[in-house]
Design a protein around this nucleic acid. Structure first.
Lengths: 220, 220
DNA sequence: TCTTTTATAATACGAATGTATTATATTACA
DNA sequence: TGTAATATAATACATTCGTATTATAAAAGA
């Protein structure tokens, strides 16, 4: 009998406005009025879909987690060819989609940073930060495992002639994949933060080179 | 003729209150009234020392940068003994003072996280974030150089018998110290963020092991 | 078409914010 | 001791916040 809208889509559109504002001006700028203006609604309409601002923020953060999950599981058809350099390149390409190497990813990363630090002081958001953490931890561990598995048929890459191979280099303990995963994970998030504070082109290139180099090392 | 106080100390004490609140509840909780209550003053007294809240926040962030600078330069009497394992341990001990491995460092790291993300959307704070970034970049590069220099007299450490040394491991290009420095830098900040979202004891131990392992590798 | 239910808008309200203003202590020098 | 200058407090003010309230518009079934 009544007017009926796609509540699911409406909530997503409102949450999208939150993310856009958070990327641009931080989460604290995503006031109810600002969100309403961002998606051309009144504050009343926002309240109709989200009774409280806390619920809206939780939903928005849930949306982020969900999207990263989807992106990762989509990527997670990891390459099965066991060549070291090919595996390295394939995984590098995946990881580059998680780094703020272009403006779109940068916006996403800014949202991530905003919510991550918000979760440090907002108990309602903390579970989502932990879930994201677990997600990336296990993903990075799988990357490490995949690279280790690819190391059997490994040779010096065609494009890495400049790399000398000191015979005495003791890499990270080869059996401890979770340590390597944690290393990769920290590397990614650290690079993300640094690319946000200084998105200069050369810094982006350095980050790419760095990831590639580390992956090659994991596939050693 | 008038009542005179130590303005320098007063400003520092007020900024200290900002840092305490930011560590506990985030920078947005450091309102003028909250800061005044934290250090037992009235809002008028705060305003007497800092005409505006923005000035107060900038001063507080400047204080952070200054302290990290002092800590690093104090630490930066880097060990001159060129033994690989000793250098690794000495540098590891230094780096552990930059990670949230105990409650005190955790509080500092929470402040750092709060200001870092605030600087992403607050142009007035951005210069300080960049300065901190440069500071740590150059420090990490020096660490990498020191470890490389120590690699000459290197042997397998007494406490790392479990580490196998695959002969074919190609480490990061040995001549590119800035890349290694950036790697170490990203690793530190990534670990910091992860330890803040999950300060479990085993995670702290893992972070320590990880840093040590990476340093050993740089000293290879 | 009318009615009933929902969606949206408009507005109101109390609380909290940064800052301005005013008044009161407080202290060093005459 | 009195006086001038400063430090501190008290309070006021406009704005913005989240949310509650109320009224209006819209649409599906009778």
């Amino acid at each position: 009998m009544p007017k009926i809208i796609d509540e699911q889509a409406r909530r997503a559109s409102i949450a999208e406005a939150v993310l856009a504002i958070a990327a641009r001006s931080g989460l604290e700028a995503a006031t109810v009025r600002a969100v309403a203006a961002e998606c051309g609604l009144s504050t009343g309409a926002i309240q109709h879909s989200f009774p409280t601002q806390a619920a809206l923020q939780q939903f928005a953060m849930e949306l982020i987690v969900q999207r990263v999950t989807e992106r990762i599981t989509a990527l997670d058809g990891l390459p099965e060819d066991n060549d070291g350099d090919e595996a390295t390149e394939a995984i590098a390409a995946m990881l580059f989609q998680l780094l703020p190497l272009d403006d779109e990813r940068e916006a996403e990363a800014r949202v991530w940073a905003a919510f991550s630090t918000a979760a440090l002081v907002n108990p309602a958001l903390a579970p989502y930060a932990r879930k994201m953490d677990e997600l990336l931890v296990s993903f990075c561990r799988r990357c490490a495992e995949q690279l280790a598995a690819a190391s059997s048929s490994r040779g010096i890459g065609a494009n890495s002639a400049a790399i000398a191979a000191p015979a005495s280099a003791p890499a990270i303990a080869p059996d401890d994949r979770s340590l390597q995963g944690a290393h990769l994970h920290a590397l990614l998030d650290g690079l993300t933060l640094h690319l946000l504070t200084d998105p200069a082109t050369d810094r982006r290139r350095q980050a790419e080179a760095l990831v590639r180099s580390f992956l090659r090392q994991l596939a050693a």
